[in-house]
């Protein structure tokens, strides 16, 4: 199958162009820093000089929930930003540079061309997130207590799906755009659009943003489920990739 031959090349590209390194470094940093920040923030606040004596006692002691909360907050911001940054040029760059035309005259279908890019970016984020989760889990163990690993894994799985939604939407923008600049503009518009609709009360229920809350509750041992958001997110990935293919299928590269 040519799919796997192309995928192998795409993953090698992720490695050689340092994309994998950047994503892993950023996510692992926040994986480690989140529990650490949660732990030291109260101490830092207490060490502020001239703090009224009564107020220092009011600062609550850090809890496991703070650690997980920090982790989710940082990942949602930087993970999504990276998903957009790493994906926005991938198709446009090949169109501009001429490598797309070069490859498409060999036995690489346009569908394979797009899907392998999605899969390779998915690989980058999955590997990086796994390393980040491991770091976060270990630091939380040292600084607080052991997180139940099953539900923590579920949290990270849900986060990965959120990242993949943004990768897919950005890939669509990249397939649509003719130039790198246009691709960047469209991609950030896409980011704002998906995040924006996600915060509209009723429709937002079906958007990826909800997955963070669900995962967070689960990781802390709470009961929660938000299947509409999961199906909505998976649907958004499928729709984005299909749209990307429809746009790219007849595009003259």
């Amino acid at each position: 199958m040519n799919f796997f031959i192309v995928l192998r090349k795409e993953i090698t590209e992720q490695w050689r162009t340092k994309r994998l390194l950047i994503v892993a470094a950023v996510l692992v940093l926040f994986g480690l820093a989140s529990p650490l920040l949660a732990k030291v923030t109260p101490d830092l606040l207490k060490s502020i000089p001239d703090m009224p004596p009564g107020l220092a006692d009011l600062i609550p002691a850090p809890t496991l929930a703070d650690a997980v909360g920090q982790y989710i907050k940082n990942m949602s911001q930087f993970g999504i930003l990276l998903a957009v940054l790493m994906s926005m040029g991938v198709v446009t760059q090949e169109k501009e540079r001429g490598t797309a035309a070069m490859m498409l005259t060999h036995p690489v279908s346009r569908l394979t061309f797009l899907l392998t890019k999605f899969a390779a970016l998915g690989f980058t984020f999955a590997v990086s997130l796994a390393a980040a989760a491991l770091g976060c889990w270990y630091y939380t163990l040292l600084l607080f207590e052991a997180l139940p690993w099953g539900t923590f894994l579920a949290l990270n799985g849900l986060m990965l799906i959120v990242f993949l939604v943004y990768v897919a939407v950005t890939l669509f923008c990249s397939a649509l755009a003719r130039t790198q600049g246009a691709s960047a503009g469209l991609s950030f518009a896409g980011l704002v659009l998906v995040a924006g609709i996600g915060s509209v009360p009723r429709i937002g229920e079906y958007f990826p943003g909800q997955l963070f809350n669900w995962g967070g509750t689960l990781a802390l041992g709470g009961e929660a489920s938000n299947w509409p958001a999961l199906w909505g997110s998976l649907g958004l990935i499928v729709i984005s990739l299909t749209a990307a293919w429809l746009v790219f299928r007849h595009q003259e590269t």
Partner: peptide, 11 residues
């Protein structure tokens, strides 16, 4: 096919 300006992956 050899395009007028053949392009490759620089890496």
């Amino acid at each position: 096919y050899l395009p007028e300006e053949p392009a490759f992956y620089p890496w």
